[in-house]
Structures are given as C-alpha cells and as structure tokens.
Amino acid sequence: MLSRRQKRLSAVVLVLTLLGGAVAAMLYALQQNIDLFYTPSQLVEGLGKDKIKPVVGQRLRIGGMVVEGSVRRDPNSLKVSFDLIDTGPIVTVTYNGILPDLFREGQGIVAQGVLLDPVTIAASEVLAKHDEEYMPPEVAEALKGIRHVPPSQQQKADGGY
C-alpha cells in the first residue's frame, strides 16, 4: 500500500504534468498564429543578421508602397494584384476582395496573408493608411529616412522633363 505522503506526491506530479502539457499546447497554438511583419526587402533578402527568410505557406504581414502603374484588376471578379516596394526588391500581392477606399498607387499599405513563393503573397486583408501623416509603426520604422520616388516622377527628380 502507498503511504499518504506517496499519494500526495503522485497527485502533485500528475497536476504538474497536466499543467505543463496545457502550457506546451497553448504555446504551440500561439506559435502558429504569429504573423511576422516584413518589408519587401526583408522578405526577399532575409530578416536579421542571419538573413532568415519566411517559408512558403507561412502567414505574414508585409508593408510598403504600392508601385504606380502596377495595380491589375480582373474584369470578371474582385481579384486584384499589385506590386509593393520599399528600398529595393518588388513583391507582388494578390487579393480577392474589395480594397479599402483609401487604397491607391503610391500610397503605403499593409497586407496580411500567406507567402505563395519568395516574391508573391496571397493577401487575406489589405489595410491602407487613413491620412497623409499616418503610417503603421512597423512600416514607419522600416522606412525611416527613406523617401520613395515613384517611377513616373523619377525624371523630374533627376532633372529631366
């Protein structure tokens, strides 16, 4: 027969084991729901000093400027695709739905979706900035000190006509 002390010890061990299993299950579930933020350059070149790139199928958020002239709409559905840029590489975003009223070329946006290939994202949500001064904190930090000149205005900036 087990003594009273051994019964208590086994009960405490059982409770701690169940509690540990519950915490592990919660952390695993939360890990799958984390959406990391990337800029187009970070998505293509990698994030951090180790240049870690997201894997195909990973959920993520991406923020950048919509490239002028890149918005392509399907005339038979709500499908739209457009290109995003920050300082370097261009990333294509595809979306099936109604874009925000403030969405337009040359503006900053944040898209949340799934990575289809290294430079294409299938967005489930697209957010546009809501006034001239506002920019999501992640985008503002990533674009700090960088001014994007749209291709249509590059000649003017270079001194051409």
Rank of each mutant, 00 (worst) to 15 (best):
A25C: 08
I109W: 01
D35N: 15
L78Y: 09
T17M: 11
G88P: 00
T120L: 02
V119S: 15
V67G: 03
E133A: 12
V71D: 05
A24L: 15
K129R: 15
P89L: 07
Y95Q: 05
R8W: 07
G20W: 02
A22P: 01
L84D: 05
A111I: 01
T17A: 14
D35Y: 15
L102W: 00
S124W: 02
S41F: 10
V67I: 11
I85W: 02
G64R: 08
L19K: 09
V93I: 15
T87K: 14
K49L: 12
G46V: 07
F37E: 02
H130R: 14
T39K: 05
T87P: 00
N96V: 03
G69S: 08
G97F: 02
M135L: 10
G106S: 06
E133M: 12
E133N: 15
L27M: 11
A24C: 10
D117F: 03
V12Q: 14
V55R: 10
S124I: 08
L78R: 13
P136F: 13
R59N: 12
Y134L: 09
G57K: 01
D131Y: 03
G88T: 07
Y28R: 13
E141T: 09
V66C: 05
A128R: 05
P89T: 03
L84Q: 07
A142N: 03
L30K: 14
S10K: 15
E138M: 11
R104H: 12
M26V: 15
Y38R: 06
V93R: 06
A29K: 15
L116V: 09
S81G: 10
L18K: 12
G69K: 08
R61E: 09
N76S: 12
S81E: 11
Q58C: 06
R8N: 10
G97E: 08
L47C: 03
L18D: 06
